[in-house]
Amino acid sequence: MTTPSQTVGPFFALPGGIPWPDGPEVVPAGTPGAVLISGTVLDGAGAPVPDAVIETWQASPTGRFAHPDDPRGAVQEGFRGFGRCATDAQGRYWVRTVKPGALPTADGQVEAPHLDVSVLARGLLNRLVTRIYFPDEPAANAADPVLAAIADPAERASLVAVPTQDGLRFDIRLQGEGETTFFEV
């Protein structure tokens, strides 16, 4: 007999969500080149998801990861490339970071600067994975092999942040009309 599946949670609703010492501050305020990326997590009906957790993982501005398995060498001192933010009661999240460098692929292509994103929320048995691309990189985005593999222009567009007065906006729609493009990993 198998054990029936259950939804994740409700621990996302605890104060602070899943603890991470630096939360959404990938870089401190005042860091040269820092950019604020914010958005809202929405369910299939367009309602805010107040108990989601957004995690971002990215390369440094030189295109290196803060990971010992990165074959290109060490990342600059203090850059960890990871952030975590629980959504608030209105489903909003934010992360302060810097634009990552472009990344080489195993077959010699180059990926445009992007953040890898994991979404955890009630009702999800597994995390959802997507990317945030930068709107000021049209040529790099057009040549990016991941974006190029997405045939539908609206699906590609769902991965590019929108400039705002305060930084960039990237809303995450979990399903339905305007759904964010997610990847199988």
Score class of each variant (00 low, 15 high):
1 M>I: 05
2 T>V: 12
5 S>I: 01
11 F>L: 13
12 F>R: 00
12 F>L: 08
16 G>Q: 08
16 G>N: 13
18 I>G: 14
19 P>Y: 12
19 P>F: 06
20 W>M: 11
21 P>T: 01
23 G>Y: 01
26 V>E: 14
29 A>N: 10
31 T>F: 01
32 P>S: 09
32 P>N: 12
34 A>M: 00
35 V>E: 04
35 V>K: 09
38 S>N: 07
44 G>C: 07
46 G>E: 07
47 A>V: 01
56 T>R: 09
60 S>C: 07
67 H>W: 00
69 D>G: 11
70 D>K: 03
72 R>F: 09
83 G>A: 09
83 G>Q: 11
83 G>K: 02
87 T>R: 05
89 A>I: 02
89 A>F: 07
89 A>H: 10
91 G>R: 09
93 Y>N: 09
98 V>T: 14
98 V>K: 02
98 V>D: 07
100 P>R: 03
100 P>H: 05
107 D>C: 09
111 E>I: 04
115 L>M: 13
117 V>I: 12
118 S>P: 02
120 L>C: 08
126 N>S: 14
131 R>I: 01
138 P>V: 01
139 A>R: 13
141 N>W: 00
142 A>R: 08
143 A>E: 08
149 A>M: 07
149 A>C: 02
152 D>K: 08
154 A>F: 04
159 L>D: 08
159 L>H: 06
161 A>P: 00
162 V>W: 01
163 P>F: 07
166 D>M: 05
166 D>L: 09
168 L>T: 00
172 I>R: 08
174 L>Y: 05
175 Q>R: 13
177 E>F: 04
183 F>R: 11
